[in-house]
Design a protein around this nucleic acid. Structure first.
Lengths: 142, 142
DNA sequence: CAGGATCCCATAGGATACTG
DNA sequence: CAGTATCCTATGGGATCCTG
């Protein structure tokens, strides 16, 4: 992943951040699947290679969408947490979910996706609150 | 561009459609910059190569986000029009614009982007109506 | 004008083995 | 457990020239 296109268009610069096959899936899993650690993500994100996952996590961290911290319980274990900037990406993901369920995927949906379809605003609020709570917990424990 | 990942996750399948550097920029230009023809896009989309543009247009057409039609005035000239499916992608782009203007791009914004920031729902409605009108015009002239 | 054809390079990304 | 290191391939994508 290279530097962002230095243009004045918010669409192209944002695409430089999440316009690839993987970044948004990682964020999706942090948000909806509660996958916070490296190996959890390795299993959860559909077939991502270990070097690619490492690369993306670093890239997302560098661009301040996530932060990494060690877990007190186990010094070896690290977990990733969405920053405020990362959390504010939720509306984008929600719209993508809505579009995808409407136009591409017809099968049974996960509970969260149904929830979004049923009441977007409410679900958005709920998950934003959850994520902020988690972020603040992490910031306090420093 | 390959086939879509056949998964049940709407995020990953949608990313297979627009999770690249270019596709969404093409759609952005059709919507906001009123770039409808090949050469207009070639100039407008930041430095895209001719083979890449052709590739993406074909891919978007194949996935029914755009349709192509010849212009009566000039048999050689073609123009691209968003389908209903393509138009319904507008909320995704709007959220990306909002996020990008908030977190990445600080400079003066284009009028449209300011409009979105000021009143998202209204702007969404307005552009959706405009695009549908154009689509119906095209469908009638067949 | 709307693309196709070609050439070529950089890099995304898969597989696997290894390490602090 | 959380990555690194390496090797290798596919393909994204730039530049340029060509054509119906």
């Amino acid at each position: 992943m290279k530097a962002l296109r230095s243009t004045r268009c918010p669409v192209s610069t944002t695409l430089d951040l999440i316009g690839d096959k993987w970044s948004l899936l990682i964020i999706r899993d942090i948000i909806f699947q509660k996958k916070y650690t490296y190996n959890e993500m390795l299993e959860s994100v559909e077939g991502i290679a270990t070097n690619i996952l490492a690369n993306r996590l670093k890239f997302l961290e560098k661009n301040e969408l996530i932060i990494k911290r060690g877990l007190a319980a186990n010094k070896l274990k690290k977990e990733y947490v969405l920053t405020e900037k990362g959390i504010s990406m939720l509306p984008i993901i929600v719209e993508i979910i809505l579009w995808g369920t409407e136009h591409l995927v017809e099968q049974e949906q996960s509970a969260v996706f149904k929830e979004i379809k049923k009441n977007k605003a409410k679900t958005l609020k709920k998950y934003t609150a959850l994520l902020k709570e988690r972020l603040h917990d992490v910031q306090q424990s420093n």
